[in-house]
Design a protein around this nucleic acid. Sequence first.
RNA 1: CGGGGCGUGGCGCAGCCUGGCAGCGCGUCUGCUUUGGGAGCAGAAAGUCGGAGGUUCAAAUCCUCUCGCCCCGACCA
Length: 505
Amino acid sequence: MAKKAKTAITPTRTEDYTEWYQQVVRASDLAERSPVRGCMVIRPWGYALWENIVRELDDMFKATGVKNAYFPLFIPLSFLEKEAEHVEGFAKECAVVTHHRLEKGPEGGLVPAGSLNEPLVVRPTSETIIGDSFSKWVSSYRDLPLLINQWANVVRWEMRTRIFLRTSEFLWQEGHTVHATDKDAIERTRLMLDVYAKLAEEYLAIPVIKGTKTPSERFPGALDTLCIEAMMQDRKALQAGTSHFLGQNFAKASDIKFHSAEGTEEYAWTTSWGASTRLIGGLIMTHGDDDGIILPPRVASSHVVIMPIAKKPEDRSKVMEYTETLAKELREKYYHHRRIQVEIDDRDVGGRGWDWIKKGIPVRVEIGPRDIADNSVFIGTRDKEYKDRSSLKRDQFVAEITNILDEIQDTLFQRALTFREKNTIIINDNKQFYEFFTPQNQDKPEIHGGFSLSPWCGSEECESKIKEDLSVTIRCIPFDNEAEKGNCICCGKPDSKQVIFAKAY
RNA sequence: CGGGGCGUGGCGCAGCCUGGCAGCGCGUCUGCUUUGGGAGCAGAAAGUCGGAGGUUCAAAUCCUCUCGCCCCGACCA
């Protein structure tokens, strides 16, 4: 029997994927559970990652003319009631504020007092309260389009939470736009989806499939929901961003009207679109390995760690000086309009390299007296095996650092893309479909299945039958395969369009 | 919210059945050794055994209640 390789994370992905995920989150110092049920503390290493995602997204939004604003955390209950489907969609998971004061209770402690006339809902999303502002901001076609985004926290009282993937409170951005025509609104919906896809693929190195949600998976109140779907390493799908065409539903609910060029009064057309801290969960499950997370350089919390090796006291000042100078030079360089961020870890402990591997830093540099004598550095990159390290001339390393980072970025994307392609199959046969999504061992289901590209007739009956039988849902109707037709995988009806079926987070 | 599992130093766990000084591995700290690496030796700190109540001379262990976490289902970014 081969000796099992030692991994920094126990268990490994194949042993227990969900437990692996939790251990990675902990070991990488990204986040931890909070004393508040279903909530998380995002630690500095995780928050830096989020800040980088925010910076890139925000920049891309602004490039399309979007402006940032901020709306209240509290939404009057009556606002949420305005759009029928919307209420129904969110009512079950709302935190409600009913009091505005605390008083000493009869048995000590504090009890809520001063009940509110109208309860306030902690925003699960802000369509209604933003709509209220928009109704005042919009009066003429000259005010349109109105392109607004807010970075905020929202609360959805989830039954079951998973750190980053589904927490009761999470950070996100929600964009809200108003347009004079349905065509403009639909275009905007698609444009923002493209922004999310660009962020996912070019920055997070997560390949995504762009498509449309089926009516049953739509945002409550939307006419159309577009999404990007990614495959995690357990072959399940993760929705990584959504963009909604809201038609005139919310304009009618919030009374967003404008005078057209023709002099008539019209209801406006609106969109909303969002991406959240869930992206970090997607990042972990796309790139992580049995030694921890792997951060794509373009959003990495930090790019390089330098670990000086100076066990003899007389070497120390020389090694530290070499280290500091190298760090300074690297920090003066830019990688994707961000200054290269360098950590120096001079702790004199064995195993410090593993701390950084678990945290997923792209480049590790070791510097000892021998490297200095040779005017070189000893580097390892996170996309390669631990043992796969090599010596490089110092000046060459400094000159090449952005290329090294780009190479890691490419490797991560290509690896994820290959994985997805390998696990995406075209299935036209019902029996094969059921086999694909049925685990061999029902008691302890192994990692199985993947994405199946199969025809679907469009009926909700077939969609829900498959969901009931296999816990498999239609993740999206991909834009790319619109021409392809076949016999519905469930009922056999001809001329059905190709959709992506998968188990989902 | 239904079914199942689990709460014991920072992390992972044993001990519980059969009540009798709270343990192990990793990590942390100190010292020595080692000196191109997930180190070795010695020592140390760190726990009201999730919480409350009960049974008992005695409770991590038995009983009742409660809170939290994890898995499966329903719901969802």
